[in-house]
């Protein structure tokens, strides 16, 4: 390792925060349900990055274990979410979040 300058934990936290923010904006702006999920995945990845950065700062493996759990949760979430999307798009191809207006809200 050639030590020029080490990015501190702060760098990683800021990167994660920006990633999380991009995900939030995406969820609020986009309309395609598939893309909405992808934005939620961005948010989860930001959290993972935060956990790993914190784990290194603390010298504690627990943060990495948590990321493992988050991965499982993300996988389960996506499976169910895509199941719902397939169920809905099979009836109405090309639906976007705005077309889902059977429920007025």
């Amino acid at each position: 390792m050639i030590a020029i300058a080490h990015p501190t934990t702060l760098y990683y936290l800021i990167l994660a925060a920006v990633l999380f923010g991009v995900g939030v904006v995406g969820v609020m702006v986009r309309r395609n349900p598939l893309v909405l999920f992808m934005c939620v995945e961005l948010m989860l990845n930001a959290v993972n990055l935060t956990f790993v950065a914190m784990a290194r700062k603390l010298g504690d493996i627990g943060g990495q274990t948590t990321v493992f759990f988050v991965l499982v949760v993300a996988a389960a979430e996506v499976v169910v979410g895509l199941g719902i999307i397939v169920a809905i798009l099979r009836r109405r191809p090309g639906a976007t979040a705005d077309d889902l207006d059977e429920l007025k809200g």
């Binding site: 986009r30 309309r31 598939l34 999920f37 895509l82 397939v86 976007t96």
Partner: peptide, 15 residues
């Protein structure tokens, strides 16, 4: 899985 759903359902038109 995402790509699979996109392709399978043919919902790949641009928004």
């Amino acid at each position: 899985l995402f790509l699979f759903v996109i392709m399978l359902l043919g919902v790949d038109q641009a928004e």
